[in-house]
Structures are given as structure tokens and as C-alpha cells.
Design a protein around this nucleic acid. Structure first.
Length: 269
DNA sequence: ACCCAGGCATTGG
DNA sequence: CCAATGCATGGG
């Protein structure tokens, strides 16, 4: 199995908790001690390895996707340098050192995942999302490829509600799939312009746009201030805070990583 | 049975 | 501009 280097420090087991904590994720499947994902029709196996991860098969295509998926682009050293100067983060970081927030490798996947997670518990969201993937996705050996925008554009509202989507959310997913917005082009735009374009779509509000910036584009300053869990984490670690959005300023320019570390720290506390 | 959970659009003031 | 409401599911 070929080694794909991930910058140190990197804790593979800790970083991939997201894929199994709230339920089964067929698109990023944890099985046999490894992470499995379909990449352009082929299945890739990703496992812990010294100095990075073992990837099979490893080539230019799978390598780029796995680096993206595992959040290799985050500059943890710079973040830790900053965290050492911030009392709360300085306390939080040691226990979860090597945590690299995983990313959605694809924008459509990122947005549909957000729609499934709106308002409901992540357990419920995973269940619906899992059925969606199994129904519309293409199965590999272990994992199932996340459904493509093109396939979902051909779906019906009834198919989606049968999987557990509310009527409204079914409309949102179909509207997204059928919209004329170029999701790949968003990577070229500044944060605020990305948010404006995402929120122009029905069913995608500021919360979804912020997580898109954070978990697809890996924008350093993304700060999903409306997120219920992040709000709880901020209030738990900063009892004096009254304005969670404004509280993000103290982490500038590391709001994204700070949010992920606060969430993880709350989970493990 | 009931309540809440990592929102959002809609409606009405 | 802000408050109230409905939404489908899964876990407690």
C-alpha cells in the first residue's frame, strides 16, 4: 500500500471519527479498520500509516481527492502557534493534537449533506443521508459513490420524501441539483461572495453557506456562528460571551480550525 | 407520548 | 426588522 504523506502532526483515527460517530456514512465508509471511498468509479482504501496514510490505489487522481478529504491543506502548525497564545485553545489543543478536520471533496456533496443536517440531530441526518446515498449512488465494493448532481436532478420529490426528506428539503435538494449555479466556480470567489451565491438558492441559508466555506473550501476564516453545537461549545468555554458571531474575531484568521477544535473539545469533555 | 436536535422559508406584526 | 410556525427523523 502506497504512502501518501500528510503533514505532521496527524492523528488519523481521531480525525476520521466524524465518519462513524453519528452513524454509517456509505460514501466515506469505515470498515475493516480503514476508510473506503469511491473516487471516479474506483474504490480507494485509506488506512493509518506512519508519516501519512496508506492509499490503495494511489495515483494523481486518488491522491488529490484523499488529500482534500483528509484536510491536508490546513496549516496546523500555524494554528497551534496561534492557539498557544489563546488561553482556552491552549488548554484544548493538547488532548486533540493531530486533529485535521475532514473535508467534503465535492461541493454538491457538501451542500446536500448540509440540507440533510438542517434542524435535525446528526443521528437523524446520517440516517436520511445514508438512505439517499444507497438509493441514488453507485456502489463500489465497500463504499458507495455519493450521488451526482446530474443523477439527483432527474429524481422526483416523491423518491426523496420516501427516503425521509421532508417535502421542503426534497424541494431544496432538487432545486440545488437543477440550478444553474456553477458550484466549482465558487472556489475562485471571496468568502462573502460565496455566501451570497449559496444563500441565493432556496433552502440554503447562512448556516449552510458557512459550513460550505468551512468544510468544502477550507476557508481559514469560516465561522458558522449560527451552528447550535458551536454555540454551545463557545458558551461552554467562554462563559462571558453574549455574541457568538463576534466571538469569532478573537480567532482571526483561524476561525475555521478554532470552530472544529471547540466542537471536538466539547464532544470529548 | 413527548421533546429536542449542528435550519430554513413563510407568514404576520 | 423581529416573533411564531411547520417540517420528518431518531434518540432519550
Amino acid at each position: 500500500m502506497a504512502l501518501l504523506r500528510i503533514p505532521d502532526p496527524y492523528d488519523f483515527d481521531l480525525s476520521t471519527q466524524r465518519f462513524r460517530r453519528w452513524g454509517r456514512d456509505p460514501a466515506n465508509l469505515w470498515e475493516e479498520g480503514a476508510l473506503w471511498r469511491a473516487v471516479e468509479g474506483r474504490e480507494v482504501r485509506i488506512a493509518a500509516a506512519k508519516g501519512g496514510v496508506g492509499v490503495e490505489p494511489l495515483d494523481a487522481t486518488t491522491g488529490v481527492t484523499v488529500l482534500k478529504l483528509l484536510g491536508a491543506e490546513f496549516d496546523l502548525d500555524a494554528f497551534y502557534g496561534f492557539a498557544a497564545t489563546e488561553p482556552v485553545l491552549a488548554n484544548i489543543v493538547p488532548a486533540i493534537r493531530g486533529l485535521r478536520p475532514p473535508l467534503a471533496p465535492d461541493p454538491f456533496e457538501s451542500l446536500v449533506t448540509s440540507i440533510t443536517a438542517q434542524q435535525v440531530s446528526l443521528h437523524a441526518a446520517f440516517a436520511v443521508r445514508s438512505r439517499f446515498i444507497e438509493y441514488f449512488g453507485v456502489a463500489a465494493v465497500h463504499a458507495v459513490a455519493f450521488p451526482t448532481r446530474e443523477r439527483v436532478a432527474l429524481a422526483t420529490e416523491e423518491e426523496l420524501t420516501a427516503l425521509g426528506f421532508s417535502r421542503r428539503k426534497a424541494e431544496y435538494v432538487l432545486g440545488l441539483a437543477r440550478s444553474d449555479l456553477d458550484l466549482y466556480e465558487l472556489a475562485l470567489l471571496p468568502d462573502e461572495e460565496v455566501k451570497a451565491r449559496i444563500t441565493s438558492l432556496r433552502g440554503l441559508g447562512e448556516w449552510s453557506a458557512d459550513w460550505f466555506l468551512a468544510r468544502y473550501l477550507a476557508r481559514p476564516r469560516a465561522w458558522p456562528a449560527g451552528d447550535l453545537a458551536l454555540r454551545k461549545a463557545v458558551l461552554a468555554f467562554y462563559p462571558g460571551v453574549t455574541d457568538v458571531r463576534a466571538a469569532g474575531d478573537r480567532f482571526d484568521p483561524f476561525q475555521n480550525l478554532s470552530a472544529h477544535y471547540l466542537l471536538a473539545a466539547l464532544r470529548y469533555s
